[in-house]
Write a protein that binds this DNA or RNA. Structure first.
Lengths: 292, 292
DNA sequence: CAAATTTTGTAACTGTAATTACAATATCTG
DNA sequence: CAGATATTGTAATTACAGTTACAAAATTTG
């Protein structure tokens, strides 16, 4: 079978090589082994490096790639990258063993694990400067803050709102209904801060809101997923979080974590002021209760 | 510092970007964000692909790469590959490395760590039988479900509500205002399920609601913290979660995780029914949009 | 063992990716 | 708001990676 090896449904390149290794010539086999030996990194290098490592000539590599059913080296590399990306997204199933016993019958554990993964990836990818910048904006109590979210994320906006209002004055919730926007936009200028939550299945209304706010000169802060909402083009600060879980729905856990961390940081920063505010509010609540 | 950013000892490119993101221009920052958002794969593509994904021109990418201290794109990619290889070779060590060093000056990391700790402790302490039991109640679409929460936790109740309503019919939100309770209580019997969220600083009203519901014969499900709300005395099922973090406020992350896991489990269990429901709802939304 | 056949490397070639120069645009500043 | 400065994209250029043709070497086969 010196012709091109048929490309089966969806084998990984490594598996494909293993199955068809006898159809390869001696030097080709050598290349294949080198590739498999620390798969798939050598395949991501240039042809020349690969060839050198395998101690063969470049054309031999290309012939191998051809036999594996690819039309060219770039296509082969593209596929390797896709595989790698996929593999890195689900490390638990392939990489790890000890938990697998639990995982199968313990859905909660499985879910929790993937949430934990999201958290650490979020942590890693989140630019601290952005986090700090947003914190700085929120610390400035002179700046009015407006919060908005999408169909599902507005819950998180609400959570943020309820806590922020305990920590500082001048916070408002933008209703989901776009008819009410004008109430916010009318007084908006460069002092204002608009916080928008927008994840997958990005809502066009939110983009519109961001645009209008930005035109007023307001600072726009965006919480979004790793694929970035279109609002990211407008926003002054972007906080990307991980939302992918083994579910039909997205996870808001990482978003919530960042929001909570912001509130915590704000509170800790000058607790005395916050404390006074909380106490004052409690007193007021007490009073209004007695009057009822 | 608009010149090339100094290349410190051995920062990963991601970290380097995170530290120096404010020295980048707007579009460069956009590139950086796209790269970080699913690091490092876009960086392994050709410049053109990267540029397209980031919605900028190729030279912008190259300028970014230059600022990061690389002499050219190939060098940058080489480094990315090395990082990736290194990272994949050490599966477990990596997880522990950032904690100690960063914690001091990185509040976000500190917070995230304590949240992660909460998650695993929650996972450990959560009785699977309770989880399953609640799941079973929710699977039974004939049972009306009512959701209520406290001053801060009602946001989570709301999150649960919005997802449940997509998964099954017969779900209602109990307003925070106790005047509205009668609307729910009037028709309540042993088929009904009342889900209550109540954590530290337990609200007496919620205890009252639980009592009344229970008297109607309804099943009461309680989400609470590790110290258990007084509602736990009445509730048929109790889901305890961890809420303690280095903050003046409590964390709702673990609660949210369990809620999400429930929704995911429900959806996965019989997806075909859920899918039909989701599609039907989309169709209706479409229709009503057209009519406006 | 020689002819046929396959395999492999060399070297020339080609196409495309990375780079650069420069003009257009946007942003800042007095 | 104009001039200055910084930023960004377009288009031309360069360099090099990937490809191909072909000849040399190795292997197979009669």
């Amino acid at each position: 079978m010196p012709q091109a090896i048929k490309n089966r449904p969806r084998l990984s390149i490594a598996e494909d090589i293993n199955r068809n290794i006898d159809y390869l010539t001696r030097t080709e086999r050598q290349c294949a082994r080198v590739l498999l030996s620390n798969y798939p990194f050598i395949g991501l290098e240039k042809v020349a490096s690969f060839a050198k490592r395998a101690e063969v000539s470049a054309p031999t590599i290309l012939r191998l790639v051809g036999k594996l059913g690819f039309s060219g080296y770039p296509e082969f590399q593209q596929r390797l990258r896709e595989e790698l990306e996929e593999r890195l997204q689900t490390p638990l199933t392939k990489h790890e063993e000890p938990q697998s016993a639990l995982e199968d019958d313990d859905f909660l554990a499985k879910y929790s694990n993937s949430v934990e993964r999201n958290l650490s990836r979020t942590l890693k990818a989140l630019p601290r400067a952005e986090f700090e910048a947003v914190l700085k904006l929120l610390s400035d109590v002179k700046r009015p803050v407006h919060l908005a979210g999408g169909k599902l994320t507005s819950t998180i906006a609400d959570y943020f709102y309820r806590h922020l209002i305990m920590v500082r004055p001048n916070v408002r919730r933008i209703e989901n209904d776009s008819y009410a926007w004008s109430e916010h936009l009318i007084d908006m200028d460069r002092r204002d801060v608009v916080i928008i939550f927008d994840v997958r299945r990005y809502q066009p209304e939110l983009l519109e809101l961001a645009r209008l706010s930005s035109q007023c000169g307001a600072r726009v802060v965006l919480f979004t997923d790793q694929w970035l909402s279109p609002v990211s083009g407008i926003a002054n600060h972007v906080i990307p979080v991980r939302i992918d879980v083994p579910s039909s729905w997205d996870s808001a856990v990482s978003t919530l974590m960042v929001v909570e961390a912001m509130i915590a940081a704000l509170s800790n920063r000058d607790w005395s002021r916050v404390e006074a505010r909380v106490k004052a509010r409690e007193k007021l609540a007490e009073k209004s209760r007695l009057e009822n």
